[in-house]
Amino acid sequence: MATNVVELRTPQGREKLNELLEQVTITCPEDIHDAAVNLARIAKERGMQVAVCDDISSKEPMVDAEGTILNADIFQWLEDGARWWEDHRLALHSPLPRACRYESEPFWVNKDGFNTRWRNSYLEEIDLTDFEKRSLCKAAIVIPVHLPFGQISANSFISMDREKEDLSEEFAMYGSLFSQVTRRFVAGYVQAHRTKRRIPSDCVLSKREVECLRWAAIGKTDKEISMILERSHATIRYHIHRAGEKLDSVNRAQTIFKAGQLGYLGANS
């Protein structure tokens, strides 16, 4: 599918933008409800309805401190065929969250293709057949939010005019604004709900540990790595084992996974 390159306009008025960002800021679970109401209002005032998903790998709906489901009671996705937040298969089958795995900047999309800030060959290969049926809309402005530890948030702004297929004007006018308020909202929501510590804090891997893990991440054995780095087999095992201790991992695979989550392995691993 073709990917068209578009340019976003800068939101007008720094003071106004800061005010809107403050309205969607979440510092504790009790802030979630009002921030969600404000996010819904910001979208509605610009002719759009917002849909927010904090984690495309999770089956849990987004809720406020009282357990209210945001996408139902606040963002108003309630009609038959519109309750996308109940269908966990969408993260696998809809092109919207799928595209968020390959793009971190805002874009808009319809059946004819993706429209992004720059050409993205990964998006060009995403199948948009039966786009409306699979995406539950004719067009959408999509805001990916890539969070720490590999968490991906996929968020959409859909025109209140459900028949509208061209969102180029809305994207140019509001894409940057939607991106900033959505990122602020989602980051705060995730932080307010994050109670489990999955990776030790302030974990620093050595240059040699990272080097060994990068080769291990692409399938090299300890023996092969020892030959590549011209170090003994025992030295390679030590560095990988030491990295696992720092990352509190139970095995080699989890060591590589956690190092990748922290950005030690780069995009080529």
Rank of each mutant, 00 (worst) to 15 (best):
G47H: 05
D54C: 13
M173D: 08
H88Y: 11
T129W: 12
T129S: 15
T182S: 10
H146A: 12
S94D: 06
R231K: 14
G150M: 06
V37N: 04
I218K: 11
K258V: 00
R117L: 14
I240F: 07
H33I: 07
A253H: 04
D112M: 05
Q49V: 02
H239R: 01
R183A: 06
M1I: 08
E45M: 09
P200T: 03
S179E: 13
L8F: 04
T182F: 00
L20E: 12
A154T: 12
L78S: 11
A82E: 13
V204G: 02
A35E: 12
D127V: 08
N110G: 04
E19P: 00
E132W: 03
I74E: 05
C100E: 04
S135E: 08
Q23R: 14
S176L: 10
P106Y: 01
A140V: 05
H93G: 07
G266L: 05
N18I: 06
H241M: 04
I69N: 02
L177W: 05
R83G: 07
A72S: 10
C212E: 01
L147Y: 03
I228S: 04
V50R: 03
M227I: 14
S153A: 13
T27D: 06
E224M: 08
E22P: 00
T27K: 11
W77T: 13
S232E: 12
A139C: 08
N155A: 10
H93A: 11
E211G: 06
R9Q: 13
G244C: 04
W108G: 05
L147Q: 15
D222C: 02
A259E: 06
D161F: 04
A2D: 02
E66H: 12
L78Y: 02
S135D: 05
K223C: 00
A259T: 09
R98E: 14
D166E: 12
H93W: 05
H146F: 03
N38I: 10
E124C: 09
F131S: 04
R197E: 05
D55H: 10
W77F: 15
R134H: 08
F114C: 06
E170R: 10
K111R: 11
E165K: 03
V50C: 08
K164D: 04
R89E: 11
N4I: 13
T10V: 13
G175E: 07
E60K: 15
D54W: 09
E105P: 01
T195R: 15
P11R: 07
R14S: 06
T129Y: 14
S269G: 10
L229K: 15
V210S: 09
R231G: 01
N155K: 13
R134K: 15
G113Y: 02
R89K: 09
A91R: 08
H193L: 12
L123N: 05
E230L: 08
A99F: 00
I218W: 01
R231A: 10
I152H: 04
V37C: 09
L213W: 02
G244V: 06
K16N: 03
V109P: 01
T25P: 00
N251D: 14
R89V: 01
K196M: 10
M173C: 07
